[in-house]
Amino acid sequence: MADNGYEGAHGAEGGGLEFHPMDQFIVKPLFGGDAIHWYTPTNVTLWLFVAILAVTALMVLATSKRAVVPGRGQSIAEMAYGFVYKMVEDVTGKDGIVYFPYIMTLFMFILAANFLGLLPMAFTTTSHIAVTAVMGFGVFFAVTILGFVKNGASFLSLFWVEAAPLPLRPILALIELISYFVRPVSHSIRLAGNMMAGHAVLKVFAGFAQVAAIAPIAILGVVAIYGLELLVAFIQAYVFTILTCVYLKDALHPHH
């Protein structure tokens, strides 16, 4: 299947079943042309912009009335605010509240991008390693630098587990060090992988609908997977955010 190319549309044109589950992730320039320079407006740009609009609509327009008794939109905005605020407070403690706007930015962006990606014909920006890796490594470097700035060299005590018996400590330190450097990788690949997997599975099920005999089952499958994907879209945004909070807590309080 690797050399099938992507010329065919979604349909049984070539006779047999044709699956193009990865087609939806192709980055295309918006206004024609082939070359993708760093400044070219592409479908990524479009859907990032839609995500900004969605966040603005929810967090700014819906709260513009500043009602003491909130309406629907304002309730959701307040709920999102309270949800992330409580998460930051619970996980990182009081001194982590300063970083709340950054974490809120990450959460709202990932949530909006995940949900917008579930619209038919939409492009899921968070399914691209490039996008999630920027956020994952951004969090990693920010947290590491913050840890050294706040704690100096004692930040390294994060890797020296005082609770363990002395002979085990060097081994544990090595494990902790490796797990620390795997963090950004797993952090970003988890999000991208989840989104990519879900959308690819949706496309595969949709592809089975080309065969009339199993089309009803395939369509039921699409519905079920879509429901699961709605859940996953939220949970992955939540998990990305809460792991960011956990890493931030490690930076602020490295002592176990």
Binding site: S186, I189, R190, G193, I235, Y238, V239, I242, L243, V246
Partner: peptide, 9 residues
């Protein structure tokens, strides 16, 4: 959720 996320990763 953190545990599930790690297992799922």
């Amino acid at each position: 959720f953190i545990g599930i996320a790690f297992a799922e990763a």
